[in-house]
Design a protein around this nucleic acid. Structure first.
Lengths: 342, 342
DNA sequence: TCGTTGTCATCAATCGATTGCAATATACCC
DNA sequence: GGGTATATTGCAATCGATTGATGACAACGA
């Protein structure tokens, strides 16, 4: 294992002062002879000199590092978001420090402190969705010495930049589409109990029904966690109803539903139509492919970085910015058009 | 946005010296009166004081931060590895800086420098698997001023701690199992052209055949990238052979194969048996579930952290350590037992 | 010879913490 | 009161870089 090489050592070897070396290696406009320039660079390279960003950021008061906190890096959506965001950050010369909390507000808080303490210049925060006591977190965020952007999920009532998809709109679009295709008995399978986003999607579902005067039937609203087995369990009851279509409010929920359908020998969309949410890799396996509400993590990343960038440049407005993105309905083949038969 | 609060400011407000404040907040054994202790803590809390880890690590010469470089955080396996590793690091009070390179050696190099420059105490390196010019990377790793552990994949001939699963053994186990179940015409679908791990799995496949005197038939060896569509394309040819079983050398490859099988109306294991590699979430959808070679990312993370931990404590042997983990064969239902019919 | 100009390079303060050593104050003992 | 012990706290150097201010030296003109 090689030793750490410092600026001072390079200076010593070249026979110049640390200042000169610093000036040259950072390409600062300064009057150092061409010959010495060359020697400095040569010696630095030969010794594998890497400037100590730690020391540098202490002086410069910026680290060109940003932080990201997601509830669970193993989820496809967050992983994809992290990937896109990292790429975007790198384009602007920022490194991204990705951390994964496990979804509890306590861990979020801990990670947030870790990031701040390590001197990131700003932080992207995807807070856990489950209910938890977020008072301390809320308090911490509002006293943050660096800009923060909440992504995908928000803590209600917190003055902070926010970028997220309109989940209510997603639920609405999915349901609206099913209605337009002639469906009248539409079930939904959502995580309304423990998820804020789930509740919003449910609200959208109900709005679509109300809008066309369809009854909101509690017997068609089913609860499921965001895990395949949970959805699988819940699906039996869904399929026992007279619904001709189901709105599955997440990809995992859709997968659980599909497994059950498959087992019961039911086909899509012949026996029942399905609109899913997000597009998981597993979708490619299905014939027909799933019609779904899609939220492009890349778009989320782009806007989130945009907000951050403005703040970092000091161009952010005093007030918090709120970006709401509209999801897209991607029509594939899992919904039967009942109007054709009328 | 609140201001950054420094130790000095706290000291000023309390009316004591920065040293005293530092001593108290770090719970150092020192003789500061109980009253002042209390006041210091109180003032620090009230001002949301967070110690500047940057400044601290400059003095302490350690940041209690580790780095991880993976080729692609959007891959399930790496995401899972990252998740496990982060959890493990946190248990020992280390933060983990996760970065994703895109798989090229150039990016790996760049990220490695970024991490070193930001003062991580050690780095976990999962190098890209595709062929690329890794000379510069190799050079850099061997001159690293901090410990490095290569995980899952190695750069051949580089003196560096390594932790990985035995890919050759995985290929062997899968094939061996198929042979034991009475299969004689066994196809394989691997990424041997562009992946080191792929080549090893292929070697294992061939060893198993050789061992029992079965011919190695080039017409049964098929090439596929690690992407579903690629495997889907390749699968048509596979299914045109007289093979009774297929060894699919990655989960994505298995998924592409399954899609093709599904389309052609072939059933598993009735028409053809399949052994997959890794377990993807999508597996839960299949009936029967896929028999597969499993590599637990958690185990990988545990051993990788172990190596790192030893190095950090200075307990590492001078020589590089190499940990080779055996994958597990998880028998589910995608292989037909031909011996029953004999 | 002195002043001016220009070129090349260095000094020294600074960022925010940590820590060994020194310093002060008070108490206690003879 | 002088000396010693003990309880508290502060000083100043240090980590590795950055940077505005400043210095040294040579050449040149008057």
């Amino acid at each position: 294992m090689a030793n750490k090489v410092t600026l001072k050592q390079i200076a010593q070897e070249v026979g110049l002062s640390p200042s000169s070396v610093s000036l040259v290696l950072n390409n600062r406009p300064c009057r150092i002879s061409e010959e010495n320039r060359k020697r400095i660079k040569e010696v630095a390279a030969r010794n594998h000199y890497v400037p100590n960003q730690i020391a540098r950021s202490l002086v410069m008061r910026e680290s060109r590092t940003l932080g990201l906190i997601v509830p669970n890096i193993e989820s496809r959506f967050f992983a994809s978001l992290a990937g896109s965001l990292e790429k975007r950050c790198r384009e602007d010369g920022y490194a991204l420090f990705i951390t994964s909390s496990g979804g509890s507000a306590d861990d979020d808080l801990e990670l947030l402190r870790q990031l701040v303490t390590r001197g990131v210049d700003g932080v992207f925060l995807v807070v856990g969705d489950e209910f938890s006591d977020d008072r301390a977190l809320r308090e911490e965020v509002s006293h943050l010495p660096i800009p923060a952007v909440m992504v995908d999920r928000a803590i209600e009532g917190l003055e902070c930049d926010k970028v997220m998809f309109d989940h209510e709109m997603g639920g609405y679009m999915a349901t609206r589409y099913l209605i337009e295709q002639g469906h009248r008995r539409i079930a939904c399978l959502v995580n309304a109990r423990r998820s804020n986003t789930g509740r919003k999607r449910l609200a959208g579902y109900e709005r679509a029904l109300r809008e066309v005067g369809l009854p909101i039937d509690a017997r068609l609203e089913f609860e499921s966690e965001y895990y395949i087995p949970s959805a699988y369990e819940a699906s039996e009851a869904v399929l026992a109803t007279d619904a001709t279509a189901v709105f599955a409010s997440s990809d995992n929920i859709a997968l659980g539903l599909l497994k059950r359908l498959h087992e019961m020998g039911k086909s899509i969309p012949g026996d029942i139509s399905v609109v899913s949410y997000d597009n998981s890799a597993a979708d490619v396996l299905f014939e027909p492919a799933l019609t779904a509400i899609e939220q492009d993590p890349g778009v989320l990343a782009e806007h989130a970085f945009g907000c951050m960038s403005k703040r970092l440049a000091g161009r952010g407005s005093r007030r918090a910015e709120e970006v709401v993105l509209e999801p897209a309905l991607i029509v594939k083949g899992s919904v039967l058009d009942l109007t054709e038969y009328s």
